[in-house]
Design a protein around this nucleic acid. Structure first.
Lengths: 354, 354
DNA sequence: TTGTATGCGTTATCAG
DNA sequence: CTGATAACGCATACAA
């Protein structure tokens, strides 16, 4: 038989053995007391005392190996810098922390291979579950989602029959809210600055825009539509291109970052907001409220979606046999200064150098 | 003797035993091949084949228990929504990912108890090290930092003799850069919107502002100084208070969030930027470039500091016996439209309703 | 090179 | 209630 087990861990820190020896009890008793199950008053006292004396802290790894759970949950989003994900993350973190778990954040950069790789790595069990908000979804991706070795919840649109927990919103309807509002306040030449059409949200918002305009009997002038990334710079550049060839009296933007870019482009070109051009963003992030004028924005309930996703995930972790579930959060419109009704007195324009 | 070890893990997933049995070798041989050390060509082939067939993925927990490392690194910041931390986080994530590790992000909310609790929890070894950027540092805190059971690197000011790895910048000098620039471009009634004075950066920036003004022989009018949180809303409100009682021709802000709030307040009050009031922020985040006009801002090299901190941490993880080290990143000023020299023709002011 | 046996630190089982 | 012992899944001395 090999040498007797030491009472200290490799790096000299106390283990259950240290505590047990010091308290004069078995490791089993020590462990029980430390976990608050069983133990005579006397044993409890001795073990607690010994633990405090040596500054015992349980090793999370060893505990995980035994319990098969890490108490860690991951979140994978495209762009950690986008305020919409910050809000979602905050909501998720709150729920996750309340359950005594910790949140691990991954930035995928929207690269899909990156994301499937992440999904596959889940197999090594370093987290108990994952929330992922993909902007592109391929068949490959979907497969990886379905037979993920650990619970996964998707925030975003997924095929109706996809057997994966998911939390969705209706961004088509969200765009319609924006268009309806603009039409109601007298705008007619409504432009649209969108993100990539090969993304799920990009495609949905494009469809939403076209449908909404048609519903009002407005014929879409393709010159009023531009596409870029879901980023500030792309939004600004796309708006510049649009303004170079068309004269919108309102602009709907596919997210707030784009809207801020659009605002920049409009102001740089000497357009007044909302007098000349009304502006509506999407996601209703704090960024929208930071602008001057404050930006109207369609809320897609990002915090709420985050919260729901976290709850779904925790439930599934608790009971993996649950059937796939689906939660839906309705969009709403926050009207602010950037889309106040146009005064019918066109203000004198003055070119401003950026 | 107990029942023979199973070939599958509790949840039915393959383990080294599964692979070994299928390949007809011992688990030792299987493990060796799987780790790329040793093994005859024939064994390697058999094991690789078996592993692929059963879809073997090593269990990260078990591996960690053995190796005493989790390949996880934590980052604790006050406010995940502040773009300066986003930039820092991106830089850290990049270095950390390159080393094959993953990043865990904690939001402390600036609550110091929260942070020390975090430090103490490190003892359970769920991460190999941590980068922390505290805005308040107490003696208690410092103690916790020093005898942390795992490597810790601090981003921020620390006492000279504190035996803790840390990456710092000189925000006093950073403020001086801003003041010098404003004075050089003809501003004299320079105001300052700061964060809480009981924070390390708040105190440093206050001192820097006063010193810089004095260096130019300017007597500070206390009406030109306001304090709030390091947040957008606080910056906006503080600026409103300041504007209600004083008439600055320039404003230095303790960070970009505050600067954006100040811009909002200025514009809402009908002030032209930079014509009436020049504006300089701090941290030089992407937010500064998103505004109209674009905000001048003092760069404190947040990405660079993040990178350096990550490198220091990885080095210390590799060799815990290293002496405490210190890295310094110099501030610099990015001049943009918000602080262009004032035209000496005061533009007509017009009250704008927010 | 290969296999046996042991330990990583914890919790769970089961007999006493 | 308590203690001895077996897992958890992996890596690695050591012996063959």
């Amino acid at each position: 038989m090999g040498r007797k087990r030491l009472q200290e861990s490799a790096d000299g820190r106390p283990t259950v053995h240290t505590v047990a020896a010091r308290a004069g009890v078995s490791i089993a008793s020590a462990s029980r007391v430390l976990n608050g199950v069983g133990g005579s008053p006397e044993t409890v006292r001795k073990v607690r005392e010994a633990a405090a004396e040596v500054g015992y802290v349980p090793n999370a790894i060893a505990r995980s190996l035994q319990s098969q759970r890490t108490e860690l949950v991951a979140l994978a989003v495209e762009d950690i810098g986008n305020p919409v994900y910050v809000e979602m993350m905050r909501a998720i973190e709150s729920v996750v922390a309340d359950s005594g778990r910790q949140l691990l954040v991954h930035a995928t950069g929207g690269r899909i291979d990156n994301e499937t790789a992440l999904l596959r790595r889940l197999a090594n069990r370093y987290v108990d579950g994952m929330i992922v908000s993909p902007i592109r979804v391929t068949a490959d991706h979907l497969t990886a989602l379905q037979d993920s070795p650990v619970p996964v919840v998707v925030v975003g649109q997924l095929a109706e029959d996809a057997p994966v927990d998911n939390v969705r919103t209706d961004s088509r309807r969200g765009i319609a809210l924006a268009v309806d509002h603009l039409v109601a306040t007298g705008r007619r030449r409504i432009g649209f600055v969108n993100g990539p059409l090969d993304t799920v949200p990009g495609a949905a918002r494009d469809a939403g825009f076209r449908t909404a305009l048609a519903a009002h009997g407005i014929v879409l002038d393709e010159n009023l539509v531009e596409v870029g990334d879901f980023q500030y710079a792309a939004g600004r550049d796309a708006t510049e291109r649009l303004l170079a060839r068309a004269e919108p009296d309102a602009l709907v933007c596919a997210n707030d970052l784009i809207a801020v870019g659009a605002l920049h482009a409009l102001l740089a070109r000497g357009r007044q907001v909302p007098t000349d051009v009304a502006l509506v963003g999407m996601d209703d992030t704090e960024l929208a409220r930071m602008m001057f004028p404050q930006l109207s924005s369609v809320s897609l309930g990002s915090a709420e979606r985050g919260r729901r996703a976290a709850e779904l995930l925790l439930q599934r972790i608790a009971d993996p046999s649950l059937p796939p579930r689906r939660a839906q959060v309705a969009p709403s419109l926050a009207v602010r200064a950037s889309s106040a009704p146009a005064t019918h007195v066109p203000a004198p324009r003055e070119e401003v150098t950026s």
